[in-house]
Structures are given as C-alpha cells and as structure tokens.
C-alpha cells in the first residue's frame, strides 16, 4: 500500500521536476584563473633546476668569449631549438638520456669556456642547438594542471633568455686580463657542476 502511494504518478512527476530543478548545469561563466600562476610557474621553472641554470649561463659566458656575432646568434638560436625539443616531448617523441644530455651540456659548455675554445660560428650554433633540444625536452613540458599553457611557455622562455643575459653580462669581464681568468674559472665551475649532475644521472 505504501509503495503504491509512493509510486503515484503525481508524486513521481513532482519528484522528477524537483530533481530536474536542482540538477547542476555546467557553468560556463567564470573568472579568469590560473593565468598569473602559469606565467610565474614558467618563469620559476628554469631557475628551479641547477643543471638547467648552469648550462644556460654557460651559453651566455661562451657567447661573450666568442664575441660578435656568436654573442647574439647563440641566444637567438637557443630558445628556438629548446622549444623545438619541448615540442618533440609534447607530441610524444622520446629522446633517450635526457637528464644525462643536460648534464653533458654543462660539462661540454663549461669545458669550452674553460679552454676558451673558438669554434666556427656554424659549429658553435650546432653545439648549442643540440643541447637546447635536451633542455627543452626535459623542462618545457612540465605544466601544472589548470594553468595557462601559453603564459607558462612565455614565462619559461623569458626566464631562459634572462639566464643567457646573465651569462653574457658576466662574460663582459672577458675584456680584462683578470676577468678572462675569472671567466675560465667560472667555466671550470660549470664543468664540475655538470660532472656532478652527470654522475647523479647515470648512477
């Protein structure tokens, strides 16, 4: 008897209508969120990994040692090739030994600065571009869910460029004898740091 009363058409209709009225709809209107977070996340990402930092700064140091036109060609080539590496990672093309590649980049770039090696421009760009692919593949793809991908990318690229600028600005001491020696010492430090990261990556 109770069940029959519960299943009365009027009650069923009423219950259905009440359910329909409280059924949540997808809200489209929203306040922009995660925008600044994406930019700040991208901006802080390159400086949060010391392996990335020392290699980026070393690119600037080496550019300053090589002088014109490498001084500006390297920082122009690097972000583009780094983004290319990031794009490879994002579309799912694997790159073996990424962490080791980043560590090797610090070792090689540090050694080039230490030895004041003057490669032809094409070769210098080739070396930097090769390593840039590893850095982009490893670091360019780590977007926190919910954040704006474009602003993350923008922050990431700007931070990397500023690290190059730091290296170039530091490398300007190359014009003095003492500064030249200090620069080679900085190259040695980068190389040692790279060796440490290489050891960490392969052990």
């Amino acid at each position: 008897m109770k069940v029959e009363r519960c299943l009365h058409p009027g009650r069923v209709l009423l219950a259905t209508l009440v359910l329909a009225s409280v059924w949540p709809l997808l809200a489209w209107g929203h306040v922009e969120s995660g925008q600044a977070g994406g930019f700040l996340s991208g901006l802080s990402h390159p400086v949060s990994g010391l392996d990335h930092v020392i290699a980026m700064v070393a690119v600037g140091l080496w550019g300053a040692q090589l002088g014109m036109p490498a001084l500006w060609v390297l920082p122009v080539a690097f972000p583009m090739m780094m983004a290319f590496g990031g794009m490879l990672g994002l579309v799912g093309i694997p790159l073996p030994g990424v962490e080791a590649g980043i560590a090797v980049s610090a070792v090689v770039l540090g050694a080039l600065v230490l030895g004041q090696v003057r490669l032809p421009l094409v070769a210098a760009v080739g070396v930097v571009a090769l390593f840039a692919v590893f850095h982009g593949h490893a670091h360019g793809t780590e977007l926190t869910p919910g954040q704006n991908a474009m602003l993350y990318s923008l922050g990431f690229v700007i931070a990397t460029g500023l690290l190059h600028a730091t290296g170039i600005a530091t490398g300007l001491i190359n014009r003095w004898d003492l500064g030249r020696q200090a620069l080679r010492g900085a190259g040695a430090l980068v190389m040692v740091g790279g060796l440490y990261f290489l050891w960490s990556a392969v052990r």
Partner: peptide, 17 residues
C-alpha cells in the same frame, strides 16, 4: 631579434601543447 626568437619559441611550445 631575440624577442622574435622568444615569440617563435612560445609558438612552438604552444603547437606541442
């Protein structure tokens, strides 16, 4: 020109995303 290269880099990463 460096600013241009940064714009290219953002574009390539966006294509990946």
């Amino acid at each position: 020109r460096v600013a241009g290269s940064w714009i290219v880099a953002v574009g390539m990463l966006m294509l990946g995303w």
